[in-house]
Design a protein around this nucleic acid. Structure first.
Length: 458
RNA sequence: GAGGUUGUAGCUCAGUUGGUUAGAGCGUCGGAUUGUGAUUCCGAAGGUCGCGGGUUCGAGACCCGUCUUCCUCCCCA
């Protein structure tokens, strides 16, 4: 055998059974999005490098797939930059385009570009693949699909509430047994930084705090020390480690902790409003948790921050999102607040596969198989086959008069529901045998009765 | 981007301190008194051992490189 072909790391092929499951998942997600008034849009797989670069921080830039200039454009390569060891500049001269890294930044670009054609608040959803030059791991791919819902042009907290409901509804509809919807607010984090006297270092602070459940209190303190935080600041952070209990009691603790921070209290007010509305509306299977340590690296968030984790599985966050007040400002449109969340389709798929949550009938791509006994019997069968297809059923005839054993095995492997047998005996009697592949039961029917039954069964 | 790890038949894996034609289970294909699957029995096919180089009389086993897998960090869906 020749050298086996391969696909790049972190990418996957999807077999028919997998596509069926993925389509089911996407259909469930879209249906919820639609009912909340979001309409689908699509944007190109690749954008101009300038659109993407610098929007995700230094780490993010490194993970953006660049598209090499082709033809004459290759001559634009900045060899001086290479000689000076300025690799970023060299790379920019080589690649003017890049694969999209997420759907949010392209969306911001989209909104600014089409601002005069849109009605605000503009609600859109977008389900498309994104690419990251990350190192593949469990639940981490270089090509994966995000399902984003965003609304821009309103700062109403109604949308935070709505997005939480969408989290809950989508994941409940997908039968996830349990999941936590963690929420925090960037203003609260700003307040903490203010109280600790490190306002200008909020990113370092929150990144360290974000790791609390992973590396523990000492780990966080060590990291802060390593980053050069003053002992007095670290002392002021310590009370946060005792931050436990119900959402209400956490809110109370934070009210006194942030008493001196105007912005911090504003963040708490926003959270309180969301909690109140959600507790009135209720959630199906999700649990809304105020998680003070939730920070998320994306530095464009300005208000609410969300993250969703599935319970009882080893998997990172399956959804994330938040409010951003200035994202479109990066492309020249100020004063437009947005909030949105993203469902990680591939992780949700992995979780659902692990928990066996996909409906079993999804791998049925054929309802009825007609057994082939040779040209003369097949003739009659082919007419019936056409009528069955007209009823909307997936049906086909086995292509050759192979042994019955083989044809039934084919039906079995394809998970066919019913097999129609028209052999010499049946043809002579003007009947057909209908075999239920699940029970093995078989009955003789006239063509008319068979078609009636088809209409009832499916 | 840093460190570690993995790669043998379609799949899951054996393969003894380097030694003839590299094995198993499952799956696939064929057959078992002529028309009955998923559970029986018999048989067959299928691998230049990820790829490239090196050491050796001799490499699936050892060394180097490379790609890939999974893991930790980083970051994230």
């Amino acid at each position: 055998m020749a050298q086996k072909p391969a696909i790049p790391k972190g990418t996957r092929d999807f077999l028919p059974a997998e596509v069926a499951k993925r389509n089911y998942m996407f259909a469930t997600i879209k249906e919820v999005f639609r009912r909340y008034g979001y309409a689908p849009i699509e944007t190109p797989s690749f954008e101009l490098s300038t659109t993407l670069m610098g929007k995700y921080g230094e780490e993010g830039d490194r993970l953006i797939f660049r598209i090499l200039n082709s033809g004459e454009k290759m001559k634009k390569a900045d060899l001086d930059a290479l000689a000076q060891d300025n690799l970023p500049r060299f790379a920019n001269s080589l690649a003017e385009k890049a694969l999209r890294y997420d759907l949010t930044v392209p969306f911001a670009r989209f909104v600014v570009q089409h601002q005069n054609e849109l009605t605000f608040p503009f609600k859109r959803y977008q389900i498309q693949p994104v690419w990251r030059a990350d190192r593949p791991q469990h639940g981490r791919y270089q090509e994966f699909t995000q399902c984003d819902v965003d609304v821009v042009g309103s700062d109403s907290l109604l949308y935070e509430v709505e997005l939480i409901q969408i989290f809950d509804e989508v994941l409940s509809n997908l039968s996830l047994p349990g999941f936590s919807i963690q929420i925090n607010n960037r203003k609260v984090l700003s307040g903490i930084a203010e109280v600790c006297g490190v306002s200008e270092r909020i990113i370092d602070l929150t990144v360290a705090l974000d790791k609390l459940d992973k590396i523990g209190e000492d780990g966080v303190i060590d990291e802060l020390k390593a980053k050069g935080f003053a002992p007095t600041s670290i002392e002021k952070i310590k009370p946060l480690f005792a931050f436990e209990g119900s959402n209400d009691s956490k809110m109370n603790l934070m009210r006194s902790y942030l008493a001196s921070s105007e912005i911090g209290l504003k963040g708490l007010d926003e959270l309180a409003e969301v909690f109140e509305q959600i507790s009135e509306l209720g959630l199906q299977r999700g649990e809304l948790i105020f998680d003070l340590t939730l920070a998320r690296g994306l530095n464009y968030y300005t208000g609410a921050i969300f993250e969703v984790k599935a319970k009882d599985v080893k998997m990172g966050s399956i959804c994330g999102g938040g409010r951003y007040d200035d994202l479109t400002a990066l492309f020249g449109l100020k004063g437009l607040s947005g909030v949105g969340v993203s469902f990680g389709a591939d992780r949700i798929y992995d979780v659902m596969t692990e928990l066996e949550l996909f409906p079993k009938e999804l791998n049925r791509t054929l309802d009825i198989l007609f057994v082939n006994f040779g040209a003369s019997e097949a003739k009659h069968g082919l007419k019936l086959l056409q009528q069955v297809r007209n009823l909307g059923l997936a049906a086909e005839m086995y292509p050759s008069a192979a042994k019955l054993q083989k044809q039934l095995k084919y039906a079995n492997d394809r998970n066919v529901a019913y097999v129609v047998i028209i052999g010499e005996e049946e043809a002579a009697a003007g009947m057909l045998s209908l075999k239920n592949m699940e029970t093995g039961a078989q009955e003789q029917l006239s063509s008319a009765d068979f078609l009636t039954k088809c209409g009832q069964l499916f």
